[in-house]
Design a protein around this nucleic acid. Structure first.
Lengths: 341, 341
DNA sequence: CTGAAAGCGCTTACAG
DNA sequence: CTGAAAGCGCTTACAG
């Protein structure tokens, strides 16, 4: 590979000038620019990214840290990542996919992360990734609330999960449902904790007693059990319960499908016998299935975009005012899976 | 951030020695090792990845190039990426998500890609990404066959798409189907071209005439139209056709759902009136829906793993023999969506 | 097993 | 607008 010296020599200019032609940080005369560019093309020269990084102290990459061991992309993640990549490329940034274990203590990494900042997906209570990032002084934003981290003023982008659960519960309760089963996300995730609290409050507000069968949590690790979560929890609790559950709130579309399968085996029809509400799923796919599924539009792509924007502010790539906590709007999308009792 | 000089000075050793205790490329005495490690911990020192890269000429990252503009992860991609990340981390490699436009000519990138090698997903005919990679002398492997590139001896990992289509056709034809509609992937993708050829051969082998309504291609760009592909093609062709299509082969699960929705609107039941076969979908989800969907197990995660292994061979991080063309096995998973006519 | 020194390929004050 | 030189923070022959 040709290097800057080769180009400089052949174009009869200094390295600094070649550098300027490519970085455009200082003006270069048209003649020189043209000559440098021509020589570069002949030599197939492109500035070495690593050498540049070493002096600018910027890698032009952001890390997307995904929970290790629980790595499974849902439609939500897809769209989120889509937003992240598109927005990041706007600023010339690339995206490094990173799995850092949420809990287990491994040997410290043998070198620094070659990233300028990070986006943390699905934070958990006492999330180790956040400690690591903080300790290595890497600017980051979390997608979701953080808890028990002992770190001040963490930047977050999030949906209003409290409001989301209230909206869903009010929606279902207004349809006459009082025995609602909630298939929540993983217990250690902060989003689950927020949702559970909101769920309990919503029930209280309508004088509905909270019962043990009402709240369930997704297994932590991606596994056979994880895939069967919706089926198993639905089948086991409905089959062994005296009273009749009339509505299910499902964390995602996969869980919903899985739950529907259990309902079928139990002889229940959706929405005639039981209503089903999906919090975070692929709206397009939910529209296509029968019955089409009522759910929440969380705007995952927008979450991705805003995460990048906020991170860019922290990296001073983006100038101007910004808020450390950005909320992305959400709204109910009514389809055919919820009915009145 | 502490640098190697700080550690060297405080530990009373040379920079080279500090370097050795971290890289472990040359032995260091226990006492020195311990002292260096202790000082490093005190100073919170970690070797600078970029500086190391500059001299070793390795970024320890591989690029995963995803078609730009058509970026939409399916379950297949999810599992593929999962395999890639897991396997790459085995060798200390990270994964950089990269979108390079397949066709449009953009201004050349302002710096080299900070990757040691690349994996190209979903190659198209005359794929620009492959030209770019080749031109920049970045080792790469494609997942899928390449065509019209004028490049010798490209490494590929792939399913045997020819065999897959033959297996599917034989399966359906053995059940008495003779009017089969094929909802293929995007027309410019090499996989689609291979599939179409195999489809035509399979029909010929059974003296079935190929008709215009039989083969359809997914829109190139992720769009509203893209999401409606399965519905629109199914609805429009079945509604306007005299003869009766009795089986549909669908590229992926999303398309299948979408097609089923059209079938419902047309008053057809699966599999009573029409059979449905999914080539590449989320087997677990396909198992959960009603009717459960018959399809192919393409082992996407294994494709990811093998792509990385092959790339590692090309980068000489993996020693020993290897073949430039690796085929991952596939097999039919029978469920409830195909019946005999 | 350890050290001194050169060098990886750029960018960036500084000077003109 | 351009150049000469120092320096980014490591690794790696070379020498001992």
């Amino acid at each position: 590979m040709a290097k800057i010296d080769d180009v400089a020599r052949l174009a009869g200019v200094s390295k600094g000038t070649v550098s300027n032609v490519f970085s455009q940080k200082r003006p270069t005369s048209p003649k020189v620019t043209e000559r440098v560019l021509r020589v570069s093309r002949e030599l197939n020269y492109v500035p070495n990214h690593t050498a540049r990084s070493l002096v600018t102290k910027k890698t032009m990459a952001i890390g997307l840290t995904i929970p290790h061991g629980n790595f499974f992309f849902s439609a939500f993640h897809n769209q989120f990542i889509n937003g992240v990549i598109l927005e990041a490329s706007t600023y010339g940034y690339r995206v490094l996919l990173d799995m850092i274990a949420v809990e287990e203590v491994k040997t410290p990494s043998l070198a620094s992360y070659p990233i300028d900042g990070a986006i943390v997906l699905g934070p958990t209570k006492e999330d180790r990734r956040i400690q690591l990032l903080h300790q290595n002084q890497i600017p980051f934003v979390t997608v979701g609330k953080i808890m028990n981290q002992g770190i001040e003023d963490v930047s977050t982008v999030n949906n209003n999960n409290d409001k989301i659960i209230h909206d869903i519960c009010n929606y279902l309760i207004s349809k006459g449902h009082r025995n609602i089963m909630f298939l929540n996300a993983g217990q250690q995730m902060t989003v689950s904790i927020v949702r559970t609290e909101a769920f309990i409050h919503a029930l209280e507000a309508h004088q509905i007693e909270l019962r043990p069968h009402m709240i369930h949590y997704k297994p932590l690790i991606y596994s056979e059990e994880y895939m069967r979560y919706g089926y198993d929890e639905t089948y086991n609790t409905l089959a062994n319960l005296e009273e009749k559950v009339t509505a299910i709130i499902s964390d995602d579309d996969r869980t919903a499908f899985s739950a529907m399968n259990a309902l079928k085996d139990l002889g229940y029809c959706v929405p005639e016998d039981i209503s089903l509400f999906v919090i975070c799923g692929d709206l397009s796919m939910m529209h296509q299935v029968t019955p089409s599924l009522t759910g929440m539009d969380l705007q995952p792509s927008e979450l991705g975009v805003q995460s990048v924007k906020l991170l860019m502010h922290k990296l001073s790539v983006l100038e101007g005012e910004f808020t450390n906590h950005w909320i992305v709007d959400s709204k109910i999308v009514e389809r055919d899976s919820c009915s009145s009792v």
